[in-house]
């Protein structure tokens, strides 16, 4: 069940936005019996840098997760699903990572998002790390897939903050396209 972020306490550093972390894990065999939303487990919301670390420090790192697991870190009030009003017209940058890189890259991505390093107004919705059997996948969701200046700016910031290997492929996909080819979830 969802709990809103507590107000930052004295001495804490407030974030520009409150965020929520969700976790999902797909167990083999139940793909069709339940919908994505039912797999989604709320972890915590936070409003300050210190609250973030208190939550993050207690979570398993992506490299420690097994099977088909995802962390979803979204602005509070945005559900990590395409149906949410904030995501309907949006899209995401997708970055495939060789095994062994996900934990470090995820942390860099999260810190850049919380620290407002993307400088694209209200465009960022959230980020996902998807642990899979082969490669791991990072994605960064934004509101307006048709806003090319914004998506390019997000890509350039991603390159700067993630320190990716030079051969890393980055792909932008609208949520509408992900739905059409059933590649989203």
């Amino acid at each position: 069940t969802f709990r809103p972020a507590p107000k930052p306490g004295p001495g804490e550093h407030p974030l520009q936005f409150n965020y929520s972390i969700w976790f999902s894990k797909r167990t083999p065999g139940n793909k069709t019996s339940t919908t994505f939303g039912q797999h989604l487990k709320f972890v915590a919301s936070f409003a300050s840098v210190e609250q973030f670390w208190a939550v993050y420090s207690h979570l398993a790192r992506p490299s420690e997760l097994t099977g088909h697991s995802d962390y979803h870190l979204f602005k509070e009030g945005i559900r990590p699903m395409w149906e949410d009003d904030a995501n309907k017209l949006g899209g995401k940058w997708i970055i495939r990572l060789k095994k062994g890189l996900a934990s470090r890259c995820w942390e860099n991505l999260v810190l850049a998002m919380l620290g407002e390093q993307f400088v694209v107004g209200e465009e960022i919705c959230g980020a996902v790390v998807s642990v899979r059997f082969q490669d791991d996948i990072l994605s960064l969701w934004n509101r307006t897939a048709s806003d090319q200046a914004t998506t390019i700016r997000i890509r350039d910031t991603l390159k700067r903050v993630l320190h990716l290997p030079s051969n890393t492929v980055m792909e932008y996909k609208t949520h509408t396209d992900s739905l059409k080819d059933h590649s989203s979830f």
């Binding site: 306490g9 974030l15 210190e50 208190a54 420090s57 810190l111 919380l114 620290g115 407002e116 903050v161």
Partner: peptide, 21 residues
């Protein structure tokens, strides 16, 4: 209005704060 911007190094520093436990 003003945006609250934090560099990575600062965020990492806050990790060690007793408030972050």
């Amino acid at each position: 209005g003003t945006r609250i911007v934090y560099e990575r190094a600062f965020l990492m520093q806050c990790r060690n704060s007793p408030l972050a436990k």
